[in-house]
Simulated scan of single mutants.
Amino acid sequence: MRRWHAEHHRADRVGWLRAAVLGANDGIVSIAGLVVGVAASGAGPGTVLTSGIAGVVAGAMSMAAGEYVSVQSQADTERADIAKETRELAEDADSELAELTHIYVKRGLSEALAHDVAIQLTAHDALGSHARDELGITETLRARPLQAALASAAAFVAGAVLPIGAVVLAPAAHVAPVAMGTTLVSLLGSGALAAWTGGAPVTRGAVRVAFWGALAMGAAALVGSQFHVQG
């Protein structure tokens, strides 16, 4: 018999990683777009910086609230499905056993083996077996609203630091181009990091994120240039 060996997978990162990647990219892109748009309007560095900081606060809160509400809805649905499955197991265990058997038959087991597997898994953990194999709910991929909210908000602030830093350090006459350049480099880095963390092609992830970021900043600069603000 071959010895069991531990394997390292990335699926357990899905919940917080998705929220963190979304938060970081949104922090970089939205705040960069904001400061570039305001700078393109002719506003002074102080106004640009104030706008950027206000955007960071509002954006982080918005990301946290949005993630929490969205993932909480998923968690509520999961709880409702598990409660329904608990009732069905209590009221009609035979039908639930047949249902589990049918699931395993569809996955390639013979009728007899599927029935034996269903009996043994039901004896071990009936609700867990149905949650996993019928509903697709596992502990690894289960919705975690607070984790998603915190990851998204923290990542948003971390991403927003980059364009804000560019505004602080750039010469007053070159805030927009410096912010755009810094943001594009940052997006390439964040896209590459997210792809690497998730096991995806690094170059493709970096270019994809940078492309949409450049598009957003270009649109913001175009809109801002239509206004002429002094000071």
Rank of each mutant, 00 (worst) to 15 (best):
I28K: 02
A155K: 11
A155E: 11
T50C: 06
V185R: 02
A39L: 03
R2N: 08
S70W: 09
E78C: 05
G191V: 04
R208K: 12
E7T: 10
L150H: 00
A160L: 08
G55W: 01
A158F: 05
R144H: 15
A200L: 07
E88Q: 15
V185I: 13
G66D: 08
Q120W: 06
V117D: 01
V202Y: 05
V71C: 14
E99L: 14
L150C: 03
T50N: 11
T140K: 09
D94S: 12
R208Q: 09
I119D: 00
V168E: 03
Q230I: 15
A123G: 08
G159P: 04
A90H: 12
A172K: 14
R208V: 02
F211E: 07
A112L: 10
L109Y: 13
G46K: 01
A143M: 06
L162S: 00
A93H: 12
F211W: 08
A154L: 10
R208E: 09
R204Q: 07
R142M: 01
E88Y: 08
K84V: 12
V167C: 11
A206E: 06
A64N: 04
A131V: 04
V207G: 06
G181W: 11
G191S: 01
A112W: 03
G136C: 13
G27N: 03
A143I: 04
A131L: 06
W212V: 13
A143K: 06
G205Q: 00
A24L: 03
V14D: 05
V175T: 13
L188D: 06
A221N: 11
G231E: 08
I137C: 07
G128C: 03
A160H: 06
R87A: 05
A131P: 00
E67W: 04
L141S: 13
W212Y: 14
H115R: 09
V178K: 11
D76V: 10
T50W: 10
V167Y: 09
H9D: 07
L109S: 08
D76E: 14
A80Y: 13
D133Q: 05
M1H: 12
G46Q: 01
N25E: 07
A173V: 10
M61S: 14
G33K: 06
S190G: 00
R204T: 11
T183G: 12
G66S: 12
G213D: 06
G213N: 05
V157R: 11
I31V: 15
G181D: 01
V36G: 10
R10C: 00
A20Q: 05
V35S: 03
H174F: 13
A118P: 00
